[in-house]
Amino acid sequence: MKPLPLPPKANKLQLLSFYRFIPIPEPDNLRDIIFERLRTIEGLRGTVYVAKEGINAQFAVPTGNLGALLRVFGSDGCLPFDTFQSNPPNIGLVVESDTPTFDKLVVRTRDCILRDGMNPNSEGVLDWSDAGKELDPSEWDEQLRRPNVQLLDCRNIYESEQGSFISATPLNTNTFSETWSVLDAQVKSKCIDPSEPVFLFCTGGIRCVKVGAYLRQRHGFDDVRRLRHGIVGYERWSEEGNADGKEGDDAKNNRKGKNSLWVGENFVFDKRRFAPEDDRS
């Protein structure tokens, strides 16, 4: 069934995403439950992937219906777990209702919520809960200003070419499944050092979970640090301050006068392609 249309005078759309790595024994059943609840939310568009390893979702929802959407996935929702227990939703931009985002609501099961190209039968299963430490944007910004930081851009080359953090090393992959051979080669050639802290970032944070787990469990990296909510979270913090509700006035004042460490545009995976929007076709 198609999702309900936007009301005649549609609210602006709130963009958001979230994920949780958690064992789901019966993804098909959970998919059906989620879809039945979501299709009643007027104007909702987006994608939800459910797999045995967890759940991954991206949405554009009329701002007036944001609360209804969050309740579906929260502690009192229809899932047997609280999706936001360890990681709150990544709240993005508010855009006009006619902004191209998602065509419709899609809820699907997949072999994994983030396809990685690994063969668990031959390589063994990684523990996604052992992926290093997440840093809030304020911590990330402070620590990246130190000299000689190992900073890896875990995105694909077409994303890195549009924008990145200053001094980041891109993996230059075309697909995420190429990441592992690139990391193996960089460790072997000593381009990255397992004995030193390594900082990881991606668009929203989910790819860094798998990269962090791989570096820790396959290559023995002890100190892996990931940017919470990825580039989206950092840009929100840079522009608005107090992005995660954890900063006081002193922290905000300390940030005044600092230039953002992000340069360029953030490639996004809805129909906008870049955020913030530009005037290119």
Rank of each mutant, 00 (worst) to 15 (best):
P5E: 14
L6T: 10
P8H: 11
S17R: 03
I24V: 11
E26T: 10
D28L: 10
R31F: 02
D32V: 07
R39G: 01
I41T: 03
I41L: 09
G46E: 04
T47F: 09
A60Y: 01
T63D: 12
G64K: 06
N65T: 06
G74F: 07
L79W: 04
P80T: 02
Q85D: 11
L93W: 11
V94K: 12
P100Q: 11
P100L: 10
V106S: 13
I113S: 00
N121W: 02
S122K: 14
D127E: 11
S129V: 04
E134A: 10
L135V: 01
D136L: 09
D153N: 10
S160M: 05
E161Q: 15
Q162F: 05
G163F: 05
S167E: 14
S167K: 15
A168M: 03
T169P: 01
T173A: 11
F176C: 03
F176T: 00
E178I: 05
P194N: 11
G204V: 01
I206K: 00
V211R: 00
A213E: 03
A213M: 06
Y214R: 02
L215V: 00
F221T: 05
D223F: 08
D223S: 15
L227G: 01
G233A: 06
W237Y: 12
K246P: 00
D250E: 15
A251D: 13
S260M: 02
V263K: 13
V263W: 03
K271Q: 15
K271V: 12
D278I: 15
